[in-house]
Design a protein around this nucleic acid. Structure first.
Lengths: 202, 202
DNA sequence: GTCTATAGAAAGATAGAC
DNA sequence: GTCTATCTTTCTATAGAC
């Protein structure tokens, strides 16, 4: 189909970012050339520079957008009142949100080392803000007596690693539905932060 | 210091692999050039091809060696008899082994997509063999009544993701010693697979 | 066993035509 | 807004001197 030479700025920009996201996730930032991204969109490499100053900014924008959407979505989520209800909401939210965006998640975790130091700091700060959301819930539950974890910070990191790990194996149409996966992980998390008496470790 | 032009094959090979491992972990496989590896060792790029047929094989050998050593070390580890003792042994072993080899671990998880399809299959098969070790323990404990997990396979994946996550934040000389970290994670894992009655989910 | 030199391909980014 | 053409650099891998 012949390509019209009219104004497509409003649609081409998102298409460039979408193509870059798909390719970065599949092949890795360093292995993807600007020519390859252009080909995916159906344009020439030179024209990409109308939509991004350079390749690095393309990567940074993808990661920044992903993390900002993550924080916004959690802020808008139904959470319930007690620490227990909030933790369940967090577990289910995290799995659901991350499974819906496998490419963005993959990039956010795998391409940190390809950011310039300045960009890395900005992304890290967003990531820590998200971590703090979970840590606050765990701290609250610890104080209310709902939870009994040996170390709040480590529990935060352990839970996030465990939940994000779902993305590495979950496949649509597999043995388990998303909501079943949510329930199974919630069961394990709930028990892990729970008040088993043998939990008092030295 | 002047470089002698004698026979160094037995020492240069390991130095090449060591330099590649360090650089792949730090910058990513695709971002590291053969020139950069050669410079790290103190030789010319052309000479690298005496020790590896190509860059891909260098990556594959690093990952294969890492996973074979992992399987061997676990096979040789003290495990105890019951499922509970074996699970504790696995948790502590996994954290200890992985914290001792951050570069190899990082590469094994981040560079899978840079393997050729054939090499990928061989690496995946080793990784699954390790996963099966943990799954067998969980299944045994499930049958003996020591554990009560809603899904053995998911518990396997969740625990491994959680434990491997330690590598992303642990820093030598930080707030917690390695053995303290082991104990904290063992506490969470033990509870997560435990027999909390509310664990019976639909 | 390591070097220099280089072939051949491909990269990021820019200039200027249309 | 997109194209073609190109500058400059860098890449993997090989050839052949020593």
């Amino acid at each position: 189909m012949a390509r019209k030479t009219g104004s497509h700025a409003q649609i081409t920009g998102p298409r460039v970012r979408s193509a870059a996201q798909k390719l970065f996730a599949r092949m890795g930032y360093a292995a993807v050339s600007m020519r390859r991204i252009a080909a995916e969109v159906g344009m020439q490499a030179g024209a990409l520079y109308l939509y991004t100053p350079d390749k690095q900014t393309l990567l940074f924008d993808l990661m920044k957008t992903h993390l900002e959407e993550l924080l916004q979505a959690w802020a808008a989520a139904e959470k319930g009142k007690g620490a227990m209800a909030q933790l369940e909401a967090f577990v289910r939210f995290h799995i659901r949100f991350h499974l819906a965006r496998p490419d963005a998640v993959f990039i956010a975790y795998m391409e940190l080392r390809n950011l310039t130091p300045e960009n890395f700091e900005r992304i890290e700060s967003l990531r820590r803000a998200y971590e703090n959301q979970l840590e606050a819930i765990l701290r609250q539950g610890q104080e209310s007596g709902d939870f009994r974890v040996p170390d709040t910070k480590l529990a935060t990191l352990a839970i996030i690693a465990m939940l994000t790990g779902v993305n590495t194996w979950y496949r649509e149409g597999g043995r388990l539905s998303r909501s079943r996966v949510e329930s199974i992980y919630w069961d394990m998390v709930r028990k892990a932060v729970g008040g088993d008496d043998a939990a008092r470790i030295a």
